[in-house]
Computed example of a mutant assay.
Amino acid sequence: MTAMDFSKTSLWVSLASITFNPLFWNLAARQEYHTHWITKLFNGDKYRGCYAIAITIFTLGIIRDFLYKQALLEQPEWAILDNSFVRAIALLLIGSGMTFVLSSTYMLGITGTFLGDYFGILMDERVVGFPFSVLDNPMYVGSALSFLGSSLWYARPAGLLITAYVWLVYTVALQFEGPFTTMIYSRRATDTKSDTKDKKANSKKKKKL
């Protein structure tokens, strides 16, 4: 039994989409942080800029999922995976994945989910409730689980290999996103301390006068 048909154009288009999405939002967000180019497109309104990139990322995600489904349907099917037990596992994986993604979005909000910190829209404190209480990166884990569940639902072993690639891409993306986000919040903490010291210094001067 053949697991994957590499001659199908749909497979490579799907892999390209999976690669492109995190590459796009990381590059776009970093440029926004350094130059505010998206905010400038919306006359200095960082919230409108953040909502715009949120819509863009969401749309790209829908396109990616559509291309993934098309790729799966053109790949070889394994009869051993085509049974009610495997489909039940598939539904469980998809349900779990969607739970992680949706609950993450609910906890973070639109700006927290879609790179608001790169726009200067920072959260007051770290989110520690579910699903962040059980996973460090629930959105990425949830997305990967949905890919895995879909591959089992359609009984396509190629989907298992694509899911492994999805996780590899997400892992690489996290190596860039994590440290950069930490830097943003560390810089805010440093600026806040500096402002506090300046205020205290000015207060002392006024008392002396």
Results as ranks from 00 to 15, higher is better:
Asp45Cys: 01
Ala90Asn: 08
Lys199Ser: 10
Gly44Thr: 09
Ile57Asn: 06
Arg30Ile: 12
Ile121Asn: 06
Thr163His: 07
Val172Asp: 01
Leu60Arg: 13
Thr171Ala: 09
Asp117Gly: 02
Tyr165Val: 12
Ile121Trp: 00
Gly142Pro: 02
Val127Arg: 11
Gly116Glu: 01
Tyr154Ser: 15
Pro76Phe: 11
Thr59Asp: 04
Glu125Pro: 06
Lys208Arg: 14
Phe20Tyr: 14
Asn21Ser: 13
Ala173Asn: 11
Leu41Tyr: 02
Phe176Gly: 11
Val13Ile: 09
Gly178Met: 12
Met1Asp: 06
Val127Leu: 04
Ile63Ala: 14
Thr192Met: 08
Leu92Lys: 03
Tyr154Lys: 15
Gln70Gly: 05
Val86Lys: 15
Ala158Ser: 12
Gln31Gly: 13
Ala155Pro: 06
Lys69Gln: 01
Lys205Pro: 00
Leu145Cys: 04
Leu11Lys: 07
Asp124Ile: 00
Met1Gly: 10
Arg30Val: 07
Leu209Gly: 01
Tyr185Trp: 05
His36Gln: 12
Arg187Lys: 12
Leu174Tyr: 03
Asn202Ile: 05
Glu77Met: 14
Ala3Leu: 12
Phe42Glu: 01
Val127Asn: 13
Ser14Asn: 09
Asp65Lys: 04
Thr56Arg: 15
Phe130Gly: 10
Val13Ala: 04
Gly129Glu: 15
Leu161Lys: 06
Gly178His: 13
Lys208Ile: 00
Gly109His: 06
Asp65Glu: 13
Thr2Phe: 14
Ser84Ala: 11
Tyr185Phe: 06
Lys205Glu: 03
Asp117Ser: 06
Asn83Pro: 07
Asn83Asp: 00
Asp191Val: 03
Thr2Trp: 14
Ala3Val: 04
Tyr118Ala: 15
Tyr106Leu: 02
Gln175Ile: 00
Ala144Met: 09
Lys8Asp: 04
Lys46Tyr: 10
Asn26Arg: 15
Lys197Val: 00
Ala201Met: 11
Ala71Phe: 04
Trp153Phe: 14
Val166Lys: 09
Ala144His: 10
Val169Met: 14
Gly97Ile: 03
Arg126Ile: 01
Gln31Leu: 07
Ser104Asn: 09
Thr196Tyr: 08
Tyr51Lys: 05
Lys8Pro: 00
Val101Asn: 12
Thr181Pro: 05
Lys206Glu: 04
Leu161Trp: 05
Ala16Tyr: 10
Thr182Phe: 07
Pro179Ile: 00
Leu23Lys: 02
Gly109Glu: 01
Leu91Trp: 05
Leu11Cys: 07
Lys208Phe: 07
Tyr47Val: 08
Leu102Asp: 08
Thr39Ile: 00
Lys69Gly: 03
Ala90Tyr: 10
Leu15Cys: 03
Arg87Gly: 00
Ile63Ser: 14
Cys50Met: 03
Lys199Gly: 05
Asp65Gly: 11
Leu60Tyr: 07
Tyr140Thr: 00
Val141Glu: 03
Ser7Gly: 04
Arg64Asp: 13
Tyr47Thr: 13
Ser84His: 07
Asn43Val: 04
Ala54Val: 13
Leu209Thr: 08
Ser150Pro: 02
Lys206Pro: 01
Gly120His: 11
Ile55Val: 15
Thr181Trp: 14
Ile80Cys: 12
Met98Val: 15
Ser104Lys: 12
Ala79Trp: 06
Gly112Ser: 08
Ser7Cys: 06
Glu77Pro: 10
Ile184Asp: 08
Thr171Cys: 04
Ile184Met: 05
Pro76Thr: 03
Val86Arg: 11
